[in-house]
Structure formats: C-alpha cells, structure tokens
Design a protein around this nucleic acid. Sequence first.
DNA 1: GTCTATACCTTGATAGAC
DNA 2: GTCTATCAAGGTATAGAC
Lengths: 187, 187
Amino acid sequence: MGTKGEKTRSDIIACAKNLFYQRGYDATSFSDIVDASGLYRGNIYHYFKTKDEILGAVVDQYLTELRLLTAQWSAKYVTPKERMLAFVGMVAGNPELMNYGCPIGSLNMELGKERRELQLAARALFDCFRDWLAEQLLALGYGDEANAMAIHLLGRAEGISVMVQVYQDKKLLEREAQGLADWVRQL
Amino acid sequence: MGTKGEKTRSDIIACAKNLFYQRGYDATSFSDIVDASGLYRGNIYHYFKTKDEILGAVVDQYLTELRLLTAQWSAKYVTPKERMLAFVGMVAGNPELMNYGCPIGSLNMELGKERRELQLAARALFDCFRDWLAEQLLALGYGDEANAMAIHLLGRAEGISVMVQVYQDKKLLEREAQGLADWVRQL
DNA sequence: GTCTATACCTTGATAGAC
DNA sequence: GTCTATCAAGGTATAGAC
C-alpha cells in the first residue's frame, strides 16, 4: 500500500466524517462526498464499495481519536476527579455542539432507528468513554455502581448536547456544564 | 371540506408521523408514505405539495397531543411535584424509547443539522413541555430559575432517552428515571 | 492508482383522465 | 376527491480506458 493511496483514503474518511456530522448520515449522499473531497467517483469506489463501508471507516477513525484523547487525559491529569472534569470540560468548551449536537450521540440516534447493525459499531464510541469514566469511578472507590454512574454522566452530557443544539444557547451550555462539573466534584 | 377528506388527511399525517419516528425524516421517502398509507401518490399530493409540508402537519399534530397531555396532567394532579413526576413517569413508562429514542428529541436533532427553518417549528414541541414544567416550578416558589430548571429537567430526560436507545437496556431506563424522580422530589 | 462514461434505480413532483 | 402515467433530477453502483 503506497503513501499516496493512504492519504487519499484518509482524505475520504475525513470528508465523510465532517459531512456525516454536519448533515447527518442519511442526508449525506455518496455524491456529496465525491464533491467535497474533490476526488473522482471511481476513485472513491476504489477504496470503498458502499456508503456503509465509509461509515465503518469513519467510526474506526473516531475510535482511534477517542482512545488517544482519553489516554492524553489520563497522562495529563492525576486524580480521577480531574480526569472526569476534563471530560465535562470537553462538553463545555465545544461550541460546535450548538450547531450540530454531539457527533457520537447524533450518529448513534440516527443509526439506532432500524439500522441496528450499523449502530452496534457506533455504540463502541460510547463504550470507549463509558469504560474510561468507569475506571475513574472505580479508582474513587465506587464498586458495582461505577458502570451505572459512568452511563449517568454520559447521559447528562448527551442531554446537554441535545438542549444546546435545540436552543442554540451558549448560556445554557455554560450553566448545565457547570452543574455537571459540580456533580463530579461532590462525588 | 368533507369528512372523507379529513380522514384521508389525518391518515396521511398519522402514517408519516410513525415513519418519521421509526426511521427518521431523511430516511423516510415520499414513496414510503405512499406505501404505508395504502393511498395513491397523486392523492397524497392533493393534500400536501411537499414532504416538508407533511412534516409541518406532523409537528402540528404532535403539538396538539402535547397540549392535551399536559392539560390532562394539570387536571389529574394537584401539586406541582406530582405533575412533574407525571412527566418523569411518561419517560420511565415508554418502552418505545429503547427502539427509537425520544420522538421530539430525535426529530429536533435531525432537523437541527443544517435545516434550522424546519427545526424551529419542531422546537415548539420542546417549548410546550418547558413552559408547562416552568409553570410548576414557579408554583413551587422558584422565580427566575424556573425556566433554566425546566430545561435542566428536559435535558435529563433527553439524555436518558439517548442512552436507553443506544444500549437498549430496560434496567438503565428504570434506574435513571428513578434518579430523575428523586431530583424532582428533593426540590 | 486515476479518471470517464454510463447503466439503472429511486427520488420528489406533476398533469390529466376518471 | 381518486387514480394512472410519467417527468426530470439525483441516487448508487460499475466497467473499463488510461
């Protein structure tokens, strides 16, 4: 596999990732990806036979990024609370939420509607955060509850994403993120 | 306007409402609505010129239902807390959340992606719940915060919907709904 | 690995007979 | 108000020359 091919491939993935996030998976056509990438139809078909295949690669790309992100947080912050606050900070400091919502949440919701095979792959992105958060909660001394608490935290973050996207209100984001940070601190 | 026409029209709306919820707005084609309704293409075009028009009618239909629902809660329950618990109970007792998520939330998220004109109409559904919840919080003695608290409650409910749809876990729904009910009780 | 051309299907939308 | 036939546009998918 040559270097040029790898670049083309990753360009396609980056383009599709953006479009899927900003327009949604269904609303993005194969042609949209062709246009946005500046490549030729057949060239893209050389790498991916179907749109679903591209989605698989996009999810893999997300997964790689999320693993890197959580690893960086683990390296940068020492205490479990600081680490979880880094997660909350990511939500609070993401103004794109107002325009397109949470990339992971919106993708899962869309695929969760009668496309469960595809959603199962996208669910791994939630698992990634959930497991990392549960690790921190275990370190804080929570035992069996750690997993449920991690899902609670994730759900709160998703709820904030939804409301922020619906009302496009920066104050709302700040206020709710603050509330979630408080929840982490009182653990 | 004849009775028959009214029935046909409401049949179209009911069909589209179902499909939009179960598959999503983009994933539902005009032909899907034709097939599901059992009517003929041209007949549907007689009532609605575009798919967007059908969406508008579906949103209106939701709005009518939500207003009826909150009015019924207001009539059935006396205290503000009981009323808000009725809202939480609706979330807890809705197993369809596992399959398709929150109808209002998923519709808004989908339309919120570069289709803001359409999403603005769908936002009214959130406003309906928000205003009614804020009323209850005002009655509880919360002043300026009532609105923000109503949005917090709505957001929590949306977050639960997302996580339940993603993990399709009934225990998760029960546990999180319980937590939300506790939050209402401690107000 | 790059690019052109095209086949074929589904989409939203319409005109007009009944 | 009901139904049929059809439209142009845009969709996915593919073959094959370079």
